[in-house]
Nucleic acid binder design. Structure first.
Lengths: 161, 161
DNA sequence: ACTCATGTAACTGTGTATGTTACATGATGG
DNA sequence: CCATCATGTAACATACACAGTTACATGAGT
């Protein structure tokens, strides 16, 4: 089965935005994410509805973070992209009349619910700030080498990736 | 995303088989599962390789359970159907050179791994016998009413669902 | 031999995430 | 005020995996 990568992608994009002072265009974010600007806008639209990011049009426009990164968790982001299914397995039929199927569903649903709850709890326990801090730690670990990441530390945000 | 229902379906089928004395044909199992006989054979092929079920051709042929239902766990069945992905989310790229993406992947992978481990543990903790017992308990609860499940208790296995 | 049932290949159907093109809308700057 | 830039969105194309279907070969039983 092909996996849903919207959460992964949008987190990547948000962390890049956090390193910028001004707005970042979909065009720039799309290059960092190796995808199309429209895909970025499509996913960002969900975050904008939740006021996690803001967009401005025209010259010098683009996307900016509009939330407190300390308070915003990965779960908030997950929900903003539409709360896609976390578990890849399912039952053949909900509300079956067959008792055999009811027993099977009950056993599997229990397992699925537990795993889903665990994932939501873990996502709710990590903030964007924590994630960004982890990124910075990795940067230090790599000796701030610009070659090994997509962000540059120059004072000109126009040339960052 | 559409869910993988092979585990659910095959468990349904196995529990029905457990109520039968002789072999059960793909045709009969397919009707209980509301699907096509070929789909049943396709999934059962994986179980046969693991010697969990056996198949016989010709008159009076069909599928029979070839394992100890006390010792066989849902995890064994899960693996027999090919260990499909449990988690529906993924990273946009494995082994990224971008440190931002590495940080994102690390955070998500940790969560995914934990949830996956939990699911495998739960699946490994439930046997086919337990599941079958749960089914029988449900049957008692419903006053053994034949109308509410697909299995009949007559002495003629040829007319069971 | 005839029938029944599995074994399997090949093809189709379907749903969803993703990618792309096209164009409208609105903001900025000269 | 008009050209440019960037978002907003619809519409369509693509990719992929599970599920369903058709067709036919193989082997077992009567």
């Amino acid at each position: 089965m092909s996996l849903d990568t919207r959460l992964s992608g949008i987190l990547h994009v948000l962390l890049h935005m956090a390193e910028h002072r001004g707005p970042v265009t979909s065009e720039v974010l799309a290059r960092a994410m190796h995808t199309n600007p429209v895909v970025v806008r499509r996913v960002m639209a969900g975050l904008r509805e939740k006021r996690l990011v803001a967009s401005t049009k025209g010259h010098g426009g683009g996307w900016t973070i509009a939330c407190d990164m300390e308070r915003t968790t990965l779960r908030h982001i997950y929900e903003a992209v539409g709360s896609p299914a976390l578990i890849a397995l399912g039952n053949r039929s909900e509300r079956p009349t067959c008792l055999v199927e009811q027993a099977v569903n009950a056993a599997l649903d229990e397992t699925f619910r537990e795993a889903e709850a665990l994932m939501l709890e873990r996502l709710g326990g990590g903030s964007l700030a924590t994630l960004s801090a982890d990124f910075h730690a990795r940067m230090v670990e790599h000796g701030h080498s610009i070659d090994h990441h997509h962000h540059n530390h120059s004072h000109d945000p126009e040339h960052s990736t």
